[in-house]
């Protein structure tokens, strides 16, 4: 009476042992990686990186409240001696649409973003990771301002000192 039940149990257990581990192995081999590929249109999007091969300085801990953010001052080798800023990627900036400005003075809430502040670009934009300094400010000391346009909020700032022998 119970033997058919035991027989059925054995058969089912063997079928499970043969099939389920195989299923796990199958899913492992069919698993898709995160699909990292080479940049398929790199030469069309990041043309400016090669324009600034010289690293003038590389400073961490420059930005308020963002100690892990590294800032590089880059220079071109052509006769125009252009300068640009490059910022490393940092995990702790939780603001949308961060714009990077150059300002002659430190940010105050009262003055906000004024017309004498120059927009250098968007933070961490993969299209334009290099923020070139306009000619009119490239030999002036000032401040870099991080501002979130979507939240209308100041995020951080860093002093920007240009070496005099540039």
């Amino acid at each position: 009476m119970i033997r058919p039940l035991r027989r059925r149990h054995l058969l089912f257990a063997v079928l499970m042992l043969l099939s389920l581990p195989l299923l796990v192995v199958f899913s492992f081999f069919k698993h898709r990686s995160n699909g990292v590929v080479e940049n398929q249109i790199e030469n069309l999007l990041n043309a400016e990186i090669e324009d600034f091969p010289l690293v003038v300085w590389n400073k961490p801990h420059l930005w308020t409240n963002l100690p892990e953010l590294e800032t590089q001052l880059l220079a071109s080798v052509d006769i125009e001696a252009r300068l640009a800023i490059r910022l490393s990627s940092v995990g702790s900036v939780h603001h949308p649409d961060i714009l990077i400005y150059w300002s002659p003075r430190a940010y105050t809430t009262r003055s906000g973003i004024s017309e004498n502040m120059h927009l250098l670009g968007v933070y961490q934009n993969d299209l334009n990771p290099i923020l070139e300094l306009p000619d009119e400010i490239k030999d002036k000391d000032g401040f870099l301002i991080m501002y979130s346009l979507a939240m209308d909020e100041f995020v951080s700032e860093a002093p920007l000192n240009i070496p005099r022998n540039m």
Partner: peptide, 16 residues
């Protein structure tokens, strides 16, 4: 399209 404040050069889009 939201206007970006401050001085904006020609190479940079003036709207977010």
């Amino acid at each position: 399209l939201v206007k970006r404040p401050g001085g904006i050069g020609e190479e940079i889009p003036s709207y977010s």
